[in-house]
Amino acid sequence: MKQTAIQATGVMVLGLALLLSGCATTIAPVEDQSVGSTNARRATTNTQTPDGVEVFPAQNAPLSQQSIEPMATNPGEFAAPHTTAPQSPAVVALVDNANRQAGSGELDGAAAALERALRIEPRNAGLWQRLADIRLRQNQPGQAESLALKSNTLAVGDKATQAGNWRIIAKARRMRDDVDGAHQADSRADALIGRDAGSAN
């Protein structure tokens, strides 16, 4: 019934993701040495199943806390990670799941994993931001902007996360041909991370 529509949007989203990947450098995952090492460890300790990983060892959390903040442009921007750092290993695991699915273009799956995480930590600004990013990649600029604004209200005092949200808002506005709005959003992001306006892109 709905499948053809879903498939069709899936194809569109995939195409869009390819288009977008060219300008996605500012929201690439944070380079952090611990990510690589924990990933390597995960490969040996996770109880993986052929049909999808659902159980994660709690102590060998598969993801460093930093890698939940993929929107910041460099590690030095983490001013107040308390609004984005997950409190529970369960959320860390789900974010890892979402990252993996987003990486392979399964954006609906990634969104579902993030929604699961949000049920556990509904006031985690980083999760809202990740979801905003997925909606952006799914060509839903309206939801992307709303979710980024939501993230901002929870990220008070966390300039890095706020800056990331304004970048998402800028992209969403550009997607809707709102060039002025996009420029304003970029300026706010620049101001938050102490850069001159216009130098970001």
Binding site: V55, A90, V92
Partner: peptide, 8 residues
């Protein structure tokens, strides 16, 4: 006996 992160 290993701790588990999340089970549905």
């Amino acid at each position: 006996g290993a701790p588990l992160g999340l089970v549905r």
